[in-house]
Simulated assay, not measured.
Amino acid sequence: MPLKNRVNPMGLIESSKARGTLMGNRGVLHNSKKEIRRQFKNLAWITCLLEFKGRKRELMSPGGYTELFFLDEVTAFAAGHRPCAECRRARYNEFRDAWSTANNWSGTSKVRAPEMDKVLHQERIENGQKVTWIGKLADLPHGAMFQVDSEGYAVCEDRVLAWSFEGYREASIEGLPEMVDVLTPQSVVKTFAAGFRPEFHYNARNLG
Protein backbone atom coordinates (compact mmCIF):
# COMPACT_ATOMS: atom_id res chain seq x y z
CA MET A 1 0.00 0.00 0.00
CA PRO A 2 1.56 3.34 -1.01
CA LEU A 3 2.06 5.98 1.63
CA LYS A 4 -0.63 8.58 2.06
CA ASN A 5 1.39 11.52 0.74
CA ARG A 6 -0.10 12.57 -2.62
CA VAL A 7 -1.94 15.90 -2.75
CA ASN A 8 -4.97 16.54 -4.95
CA PRO A 9 -6.19 19.95 -6.20
CA MET A 10 -8.53 20.22 -3.21
CA GLY A 11 -5.45 20.13 -0.98
CA LEU A 12 -6.40 16.73 0.47
CA ILE A 13 -3.68 14.16 1.15
CA GLU A 14 -4.37 10.73 -0.36
CA SER A 15 -2.66 7.47 -1.32
CA SER A 16 -1.64 6.88 -4.93
CA LYS A 17 0.99 4.84 -6.76
CA ALA A 18 1.41 7.68 -9.26
CA ARG A 19 4.68 9.59 -9.23
CA GLY A 20 4.59 13.35 -8.81
CA THR A 21 6.90 15.91 -10.41
CA LEU A 22 7.20 18.10 -7.31
CA MET A 23 7.64 17.50 -3.60
CA GLY A 24 6.57 19.82 -0.81
CA ASN A 25 5.51 20.06 2.80
CA ARG A 26 3.29 21.71 5.42
CA GLY A 27 5.32 20.66 8.45
CA VAL A 28 5.19 17.42 10.47
CA LEU A 29 1.86 15.72 9.71
CA HIS A 30 2.60 12.05 10.43
CA ASN A 31 3.16 9.84 13.46
CA SER A 32 5.73 7.10 14.11
CA LYS A 33 3.66 4.68 11.98
CA LYS A 34 3.81 7.06 8.98
CA GLU A 35 0.11 7.79 9.34
CA ILE A 36 -1.19 11.28 8.51
CA ARG A 37 -2.60 12.82 11.68
CA ARG A 38 -3.30 16.38 10.51
CA GLN A 39 -3.65 18.31 7.24
CA PHE A 40 -1.10 20.99 8.10
CA LYS A 41 1.18 22.13 10.92
CA ASN A 42 2.29 25.57 9.73
CA LEU A 43 1.21 28.29 7.32
CA ALA A 44 4.14 27.80 4.95
CA TRP A 45 2.79 25.36 2.37
CA ILE A 46 5.61 24.97 -0.14
CA THR A 47 6.60 23.00 -3.24
CA CYS A 48 10.12 21.70 -3.67
CA LEU A 49 12.34 19.96 -6.19
CA LEU A 50 12.36 16.18 -6.07
CA GLU A 51 16.16 16.33 -5.78
CA PHE A 52 18.29 19.10 -4.27
CA LYS A 53 22.02 19.13 -3.59
CA GLY A 54 22.11 15.35 -3.33
CA ARG A 55 20.15 15.30 -0.08
CA LYS A 56 18.74 11.89 0.86
CA ARG A 57 16.23 11.04 3.56
CA GLU A 58 13.71 8.37 4.46
CA LEU A 59 10.16 9.38 3.68
CA MET A 60 8.17 10.33 6.76
CA SER A 61 11.12 9.86 9.09
CA PRO A 62 10.37 10.33 12.83
CA GLY A 63 10.18 13.99 13.76
CA GLY A 64 10.90 15.16 10.23
CA TYR A 65 8.55 17.10 7.99
CA THR A 66 6.06 15.08 5.95
CA GLU A 67 7.10 14.82 2.30
CA LEU A 68 4.11 15.49 0.07
CA PHE A 69 3.99 14.94 -3.70
CA PHE A 70 2.13 16.76 -6.48
CA LEU A 71 1.35 15.89 -10.09
CA ASP A 72 2.64 19.30 -11.16
CA GLU A 73 2.86 22.98 -10.28
CA VAL A 74 -0.73 23.64 -11.45
CA THR A 75 -1.99 21.09 -8.92
CA ALA A 76 0.20 22.47 -6.15
CA PHE A 77 -1.01 26.03 -6.67
CA ALA A 78 -4.64 24.85 -6.67
CA ALA A 79 -4.02 23.09 -3.35
CA GLY A 80 -2.66 26.34 -1.92
CA HIS A 81 1.11 25.76 -2.09
CA ARG A 82 3.78 28.17 -3.34
CA PRO A 83 7.39 27.63 -4.53
CA CYS A 84 10.06 26.99 -1.89
CA ALA A 85 12.41 29.93 -1.35
CA GLU A 86 15.44 27.62 -0.95
CA CYS A 87 15.46 24.84 -3.52
CA ARG A 88 13.28 26.76 -6.02
CA ARG A 89 14.62 30.23 -5.31
CA ALA A 90 14.40 31.60 -8.86
CA ARG A 91 10.83 30.34 -9.23
CA TYR A 92 9.94 31.70 -5.79
CA ASN A 93 11.29 35.13 -6.73
CA GLU A 94 9.35 35.08 -9.98
CA PHE A 95 6.13 34.12 -8.24
CA ARG A 96 6.64 36.57 -5.35
CA ASP A 97 7.17 39.51 -7.70
CA ALA A 98 4.25 38.57 -9.94
CA TRP A 99 1.99 37.96 -6.93
CA SER A 100 2.90 41.36 -5.44
CA THR A 101 2.11 43.21 -8.65
CA ALA A 102 -1.10 41.32 -9.43
CA ASN A 103 -2.45 41.79 -5.91
CA ASN A 104 -1.35 45.42 -5.49
CA TRP A 105 0.88 44.70 -2.51
CA SER A 106 1.12 47.98 -0.60
CA GLY A 107 4.09 47.25 1.63
CA THR A 108 7.14 49.48 1.55
CA SER A 109 9.35 46.55 0.49
CA LYS A 110 8.95 43.27 -1.38
CA VAL A 111 6.36 40.99 0.14
CA ARG A 112 7.92 38.45 2.51
CA ALA A 113 7.09 34.76 2.46
CA PRO A 114 5.20 34.82 5.82
CA GLU A 115 3.05 37.69 4.53
CA MET A 116 2.13 35.75 1.39
CA ASP A 117 1.53 32.62 3.43
CA LYS A 118 -0.93 34.43 5.67
CA VAL A 119 -2.97 35.59 2.68
CA LEU A 120 -2.80 32.21 0.97
CA HIS A 121 -3.88 30.40 4.13
CA GLN A 122 -7.02 32.51 4.37
CA GLU A 123 -7.77 31.70 0.74
CA ARG A 124 -7.17 27.94 0.86
CA ILE A 125 -8.70 26.59 4.08
CA GLU A 126 -11.32 27.62 6.64
CA ASN A 127 -12.50 25.52 9.57
CA GLY A 128 -10.63 22.56 8.11
CA GLN A 129 -12.40 22.82 4.75
CA LYS A 130 -11.07 23.81 1.33
CA VAL A 131 -12.03 27.36 0.37
CA THR A 132 -13.46 27.65 -3.13
CA TRP A 133 -14.96 30.62 -4.90
CA ILE A 134 -17.37 31.09 -7.78
CA GLY A 135 -15.83 32.26 -11.05
CA LYS A 136 -16.85 32.46 -14.69
CA LEU A 137 -15.23 29.60 -16.58
CA ALA A 138 -14.62 31.72 -19.68
CA ASP A 139 -12.64 34.25 -17.59
CA LEU A 140 -10.29 31.79 -15.87
CA PRO A 141 -6.64 32.13 -16.96
CA HIS A 142 -4.21 29.43 -18.03
CA GLY A 143 -3.37 27.21 -15.07
CA ALA A 144 -6.46 27.87 -12.96
CA MET A 145 -8.22 24.80 -11.60
CA PHE A 146 -11.90 24.32 -10.83
CA GLN A 147 -14.28 21.60 -9.74
CA VAL A 148 -17.53 20.29 -11.20
CA ASP A 149 -19.36 17.40 -9.49
CA SER A 150 -16.25 16.55 -7.42
CA GLU A 151 -14.09 16.29 -10.55
CA GLY A 152 -11.05 18.52 -10.94
CA TYR A 153 -10.31 20.40 -14.16
CA ALA A 154 -7.57 22.76 -15.33
CA VAL A 155 -7.61 25.52 -17.92
CA CYS A 156 -4.74 24.91 -20.35
CA GLU A 157 -4.53 27.63 -23.01
CA ASP A 158 -7.90 27.44 -24.77
CA ARG A 159 -8.65 23.89 -23.58
CA VAL A 160 -10.04 22.29 -20.46
CA LEU A 161 -8.27 19.20 -19.12
CA ALA A 162 -9.57 16.70 -16.58
CA TRP A 163 -7.18 15.99 -13.69
CA SER A 164 -6.08 12.71 -12.10
CA PHE A 165 -3.08 11.59 -10.04
CA GLU A 166 -1.71 9.92 -13.19
CA GLY A 167 -2.03 13.00 -15.41
CA TYR A 168 -4.53 14.87 -17.55
CA ARG A 169 -7.00 13.90 -20.23
CA GLU A 170 -8.94 15.99 -22.71
CA ALA A 171 -12.31 17.21 -21.50
CA SER A 172 -15.12 18.86 -23.41
CA ILE A 173 -16.13 22.32 -22.31
CA GLU A 174 -19.62 21.56 -23.56
CA GLY A 175 -21.84 20.61 -20.67
CA LEU A 176 -19.70 22.39 -18.10
CA PRO A 177 -21.50 25.21 -16.26
CA GLU A 178 -20.80 28.86 -17.03
CA MET A 179 -20.00 29.52 -13.37
CA VAL A 180 -17.74 27.06 -11.55
CA ASP A 181 -16.21 26.41 -8.13
CA VAL A 182 -12.62 27.61 -8.49
CA LEU A 183 -10.02 25.68 -6.51
CA THR A 184 -6.97 27.86 -7.11
CA PRO A 185 -6.77 30.66 -4.49
CA GLN A 186 -8.00 34.03 -5.74
CA SER A 187 -4.70 35.86 -5.31
CA VAL A 188 -2.96 33.13 -7.33
CA VAL A 189 -5.55 33.29 -10.13
CA LYS A 190 -4.91 37.05 -10.30
CA THR A 191 -1.21 36.27 -10.59
CA PHE A 192 -1.85 33.85 -13.48
CA ALA A 193 -4.08 36.42 -15.19
CA ALA A 194 -1.26 38.98 -14.96
CA GLY A 195 1.07 36.69 -16.92
CA PHE A 196 2.71 34.23 -14.51
CA ARG A 197 2.70 30.80 -16.19
CA PRO A 198 2.33 27.75 -13.93
CA GLU A 199 3.92 24.54 -15.19
CA PHE A 200 1.76 21.61 -16.33
CA HIS A 201 2.66 17.93 -16.13
CA TYR A 202 4.43 16.88 -19.32
CA ASN A 203 1.51 14.72 -20.51
CA ALA A 204 -0.64 17.85 -21.00
CA ARG A 205 1.59 18.79 -23.94
CA ASN A 206 0.82 15.49 -25.67
CA LEU A 207 -2.95 15.93 -25.64
CA GLY A 208 -5.05 17.40 -28.39
Rank of each mutant, 00 (worst) to 15 (best):
T184N: 06
I13G: 06
K17I: 11
R82F: 12
G20F: 05
S16H: 11
F146S: 04
R124L: 05
V189E: 05
D139K: 15
E174C: 06
G143F: 06
I46G: 10
F69H: 11
R37V: 15
R26F: 04
V189N: 06
A85T: 02
L22P: 05
A113W: 06
A79H: 02
Y168H: 07
K33W: 14
K17Q: 06
G64H: 06
G64N: 13
E51I: 06
V182F: 01
R88A: 12
R26D: 11
R82S: 08
S150N: 15
S150M: 13
R205G: 10
V28P: 00
F192R: 11
L71P: 03
R19G: 07
R96S: 04
G208I: 01
Y65N: 13
K34G: 13
I46T: 11
R88D: 06
D158F: 08
T21P: 02
C48Q: 12
Y92A: 11
L12R: 14
D139H: 15
P185V: 05
N5D: 14
V148S: 10
R88M: 13
E115M: 05
D139Y: 15
A154K: 09
F77W: 05
S16R: 09
P62H: 12
P9F: 11
H121P: 02
M23S: 10
Q129M: 10
E35Q: 15
V155Q: 05
R96E: 01
E58T: 11
A194D: 15
R96H: 07
K136M: 08
K53F: 07
H30T: 12
P9E: 00
G152H: 11
M60T: 08
P198T: 00
H121Y: 15
R6K: 12
D181C: 09
F146M: 01
E199R: 11
H142A: 09
F165G: 12
E174P: 01
S187M: 03
M145T: 09
K56L: 07
G195V: 07
K4D: 01
A79W: 01
V180F: 13
K41W: 10
V131W: 03
D139L: 14
T66I: 07
D117E: 15
I36S: 10
R112N: 04
L59R: 14
A102E: 02
W45I: 02
L207V: 00
A98P: 00
K110D: 12
T132C: 14
M23V: 00
E35K: 15
G24I: 03
P9N: 02
P198I: 08
R124N: 07
I134S: 09
K34D: 11
G208L: 04
K4S: 06
N206T: 07
P177V: 07
T66G: 09
F77E: 00
G152D: 13
M10E: 03
P185A: 09
R26C: 08
E115L: 09
Q147W: 11
L12I: 08
V182L: 02
N104T: 03
Q122E: 15
T184D: 03
G24Y: 04
H121F: 07
I173M: 14
Q122S: 08
A138C: 06
G64C: 13
I46Y: 09
L68V: 08
